[in-house]
Each structure stands twice: as C-alpha cells, then as structure tokens.
C-alpha cells in the first residue's frame, strides 16, 4: 500500500508564503518602499532615471552605513548619539595627519578610523564600567567632539588634501557609484555578521536578556564595547566618504545630529527594537531607502522640503505601530 502525502495546494501555499513573509522583520518596510517607488514613478517619469537613482544612492549610502552600526548597538541594548560628530571629525583627523604631520593618505585614513574606534571604546567603557546610561555618555561625547572640532578647525571648511585625491578619492566616495558600492558591501557583510556569526548571536543575546547572556558565560561588556567601537568606526568611514564625495572637509558634514537621528530613524523604521534584542541590517537599509525616496520624491513632484520632517516623524510612528502589530502576528502565527 502506498502512502500519499498531501502537498500544499494553492490557498495553503499562499498562506504559508504569507506567514513566511510576515515573519520577516523587514516585511512592512519593504512593502512601504515598493509602494513609494510605484507612487513616485507614476507621479513623475524622472524618478526611475539613472541620474535620479544615483542621487538617491549618494544621499542614502553614508547614513545607511551609520545605520548599520546603530542597528548593532540598538540590538545590544545601547544607543550612540555622538556618531554624527565622529563622522564630521574623521575627515579633519585625516586632514591634520596629512597636512600638519606629513602622513601619507592611506595611513592617515586608517589613523582617523582608529581614533574613531578609540572614541567608541571610551563611550563603551564609560557606559559599561561606570554604569552611565549610553544616551548620557554619548550626549556628553557629542558636545565634547563638537567642541574639539570647532576649536581645531576654527569652524572653517578645508579642501581635501592633495595626496588624498585621485584614485583614493574616487574609490572612497567621489566615483559615481562608490558610495552605493561601499554601502551594499558593508550591509551584506554586517548582515552576515549579525545573523550568521557568534558575535551577532551574542549581540542579540545581550540586548534580549542580559542576565541570561551573563549566565551563559557571554562577556556582555565586551560585546557592548565592541559595538560602540563598530558604530564609531562606521561613522568615521561614512564621514570620510562624504568628504571625498563633496570634495570638501566641512564641520557640518552630517548636519550635527541629523546623520545620527536619520540613521536611528532608518534602523527603527527597518524593524530594530529600541529596547534591544532584535533588528536587521537589511531592514535599516530599507528604512534609509524609504526616507531618501520620500525626500527625493517630494523634490521631484514639487512639494516643499518643509513638510519632510513631518512625514519622517509620521513614518517613524507608523512603522513602530506596524512593527508592534507584525510582532504580535509573528508570535501568534509563527509556531
């Protein structure tokens, strides 16, 4: 006698696909991103042109790179609001090293990244060892770095040093698709780190259940400090990339808190929980894409830039509500 195993038929297959889709944390933001692209393309044929896509990519990439680091830190249960200032400081560090100390371009860039990692280390140690909430630690660090930046630069922009021009500048931001390429490379890499490595698993554990993680023998402070260093380094890289792209080192790169808050908004819209324990790098990229498409689309259809922040605020609120709702659906229907 043969045993017949029922294969899922049409409706069952569709239901399973739907369940699988809503289980993905990026589901809601992906739907919003597609809807926005369809809407703006229907409104103006300029939207899906190569030039405009390049504009979106260049506007998205640096903040998306910061958002990658922010995701790791939020997932581990902490936050960094000084990263935008690290982004502004890093190009100056490179400039000081090259123009005042004669350091070659590539070592100067590496030095800037290392100093940024050191800033993250200080943030992490103050937060974990001295038990200062990370919001307060990094608020203090924000103003400290702002003071250092304005004092040392006298608030004047400078040109990119001559030795950092040419191939270095093209590869690190000035090339048409350099920003996007770096961004996608880093997103894929850190998506794998968060979902497929021990570091990612421990980051989720520390943010999800710090007591349980400690009892399992995970060095929770080391994980948190590591993630502070990661977000600062990525912030510095994003700042350098932006300086190379605009061919100028400006104390207003990132607009003070703008790059930080936009990166946090992108992470939250992409499904990262502020309370820690969950979040996705791909979701943050999609969140950043949604914000960039909104701003770009408004410009193209002739809407004033002023209501953009209103829309951004609404987007954060709606996405948080949608994430809460989808989380409940996931828990109810997933097991």
């Amino acid at each position: 006698m043969s045993v017949v195993v029922d294969k899922p038929r049409g409706p069952a297959l569709a239901r399973r696909a739907w369940t699988g889709f809503i289980r993905r944390r990026e589901a809601s933001v992906l739907v919003v991103a597609i809807a926005l692209v369809v809407y703006f393309q229907a409104s103006t044929p300029l939207f899906l042109t190569t030039d405009n896509l390049r504009n979106i990519a260049q506007a998205t990439a640096p903040t998306a790179i910061v958002a990658v680091g922010i995701v790791f830190l939020l997932v581990s249960g902490e936050i960094d609001i000084s990263v935008g200032m690290v982004a502004a400081l890093a190009p100056y560090l490179m400039h000081y090293a090259i123009d005042f100390y004669g350091v070659p371009a590539v070592p100067a860039i590496v030095l800037a990244l290392l100093i940024a990692a050191g800033i993250g280390l200080v943030n992490g140690l103050i937060t974990t060892r001295l038990k200062v909430p990370s919001f307060v630690t990094t608020l203090g660090m924000f103003y400290l770095l702002y003071g250092i930046l304005l004092t040392t630069s006298r608030a004047y922009p400078v040109a990119v040093p001559a030795s950092a021009k040419g191939d270095v500048q093209t590869w690190l931001g000035a090339g048409d698709w350099a920003s996007l390429s770096w961004c996608l490379l880093l997103v894929v890499f850190f998506h794998l780190v968060l979902t497929r490595t021990r570091w990612g698993l421990h980051t989720i554990s520390v943010g999800g259940n710090i007591l349980g993680a400690t009892e399992a023998g995970i060095r929770v402070n080391r994980v948190k400090v590591g993630n502070f260093m990661l977000v600062s380094t990525l912030g510095a890289f994003a700042g350098l990339m932006e300086a190379f792209r605009i061919n100028s080192i400006d104390p207003n790169i990132g607009g003070g808190t703008r790059i930080t808050f936009t990166a946090i908004a992108a992470a939250v819209i992409g499904g990262t929980a502020l309370a820690g324990g969950s979040g996705t790098v791909i979701g943050a990229l999609l969140g950043m894409f949604v914000l960039a498409v909104l701003q770009n689309g408004f410009n193209l259809v002739g809407v004033s830039a002023n209501p953009f922040f209103l829309i951004q605020g609404l987007a954060i609120l709606v996405s948080m509500i949608a994430n809460q709702y989808l989380s409940r659906l996931r828990r109810a229907g997933g097991s």
Binding site: L192, T197, H202, I204, S205, N209, L211, G217, I218, G277
Partner: peptide, 28 residues
C-alpha cells in the same frame, strides 16, 4: 534559574548552544 535563562529573540537551538556554538570558520 527560574525562567530567566533563555533569550526570547533566539531560536530554541541557538539557545541550546548559546556561547558553545558550533562553527565552520567564522560562520555558525
């Protein structure tokens, strides 16, 4: 400990091997 040991956000098998993960190179 009472109901404190597991990480809600991780799968059962990741919880089972938390901090004793099997890996192939750097990947789980």
């Amino acid at each position: 400990y009472q109901d404190l040991a597991l990480v809600n956000e991780l799968s059962v098998y990741h919880n089972m091997f938390l901090n004793r993960e099997h890996r192939i190179g750097p990947l789980l």
